[in-house]
């Protein structure tokens, strides 16, 4: 099984790169959409299948799912992002095929980063928390949420690029291949809404983990363990000051505001896109800088 896992881990970035190349070729040298989808869809399904196989092999080899380290999570997010795009959009709407190049590129980068680094941080001791169903649900919902936000960011980025191209009278590949501004806005808003729902669930489940898990089986216990039992509730609330949680709540708030202003104040177009792009910027900060300086919290090694 480890051999299979290593082979798949090496193979996956190459497969994603192949998809990026194919989508890129059809993006810059336009092919008929029907012809593009004829080959793109089966290829995308095949990559998703190989990725699912890799997740299975990794779980079997490492005795835990791909959610203990940020590098493992990257692979899971790449998988979720690409699968959501293929099944929810590419398969249903021909017009989205032009965006495949960008989604596949992001999935490729995430998987490449994961494949190159996942071996450097191995979980040596399987903590009980990693086996806990609520924890698994918490991470799964987070992954879905972040994947949806990345998808929204891709659509948002494309919106801004197309917006600029239209303002500058640039009628190149972007103009030809990317869906209209209104469609990108619709897709982005939908992804934002889905991401917001999942992140809400993830935060709620995280709250449950914080208040109900005994300190010994919880990495948070490394901080709260020294405190008297009567302080545990207080300590749980004090965790809200953790940079990781603060950033996550901020991300949640920004995406929530995005949906609110659209619904009740009819904020649309570029202004709306800038709202959710700022949410994505916070997401990136949360997943990178904050993760690095976030001491032991959200680390399960």
């Amino acid at each position: 099984m480890p051999v299979i896992e290593i082979i798949l881990r090496t193979l996956l970035p190459a497969l994603y790169a192949g998809l990026v190349f194919y989508f890129g070729r059809t993006f810059f040298r336009p092919l008929d959409v029907a012809r593009r989808l004829k080959y793109a869809l089966p290829a995308a399904y095949a990559v998703i299948a190989v990725h699912a196989l890799y997740i299975g092999a990794y779980t079997a080899t490492e005795h835990h799912e791909l959610l203990a380290t940020i590098y493992e999570l990257m692979s899971l997010i790449a998988f979720t992002l690409f699968a959501v795009y293929v099944f929810a959009e590419l398969r249903l709407s021909k017009e989205t095929s032009g965006t495949g190049f960008f989604v596949a590129a992001v999935a490729f980068l995430l998987q490449l980063a994961s494949s190159l680094t996942v071996g450097s941080e191995r979980v040596t001791e399987i903590k009980p928390l990693l086996k806990d169903p609520i924890f698994n649900l918490h991470v799964t919902t987070s992954v879905f949420g972040y994947a949806a936000f990345i998808l929204a960011a891709i659509y948002g980025g494309l919106y801004l690029l197309l917006y600029r191209a239209l303002r500058r009278n640039e009628y190149g590949a972007l103009f030809e291949q990317i869906p209209s501004l209104s469609r990108l806005e619709r897709f982005g808003t939908r992804a934002t809404a889905v991401g917001f729902v999942f992140l809400t669930l993830a935060i709620a489940l995280g709250g449950v983990l914080l208040t109900h898990f005994p300190p010994a089986s919880n990495p948070i216990g490394s901080i709260t363990g020294a405190m008297p039992a009567s302080w545990s509730m207080l300590s749980s609330y004090s965790m809200l000051l953790d940079p990781k949680i603060l950033m996550t709540l901020l991300v949640w708030l920004v995406f929530g505001i995005t949906l609110l202003v659209r619904q009740f104040w009819h904020v649309e177009g570029r202004r709306l896109v800038l709202f959710w792009m700022s949410g994505f910027a916070l997401t990136v900060i949360s997943m990178t800088i904050v993760n690095m300086i976030g001491t032991n919290f959200h680390s399960f090694l």
């Binding site: 336009p30 017009e95 197309l162 239209l166 103009f175 030809e176 869906p179 209209s180 501004l181 209104s182 469609r183």
Partner: peptide
Amino acid sequence: TGAATISFAAVELTRKIYDD
């Protein structure tokens, strides 16, 4: 593919902003 007259180009350009 692509608009080849001014009037059609006006509509096609608009459709790149509002598809529906």
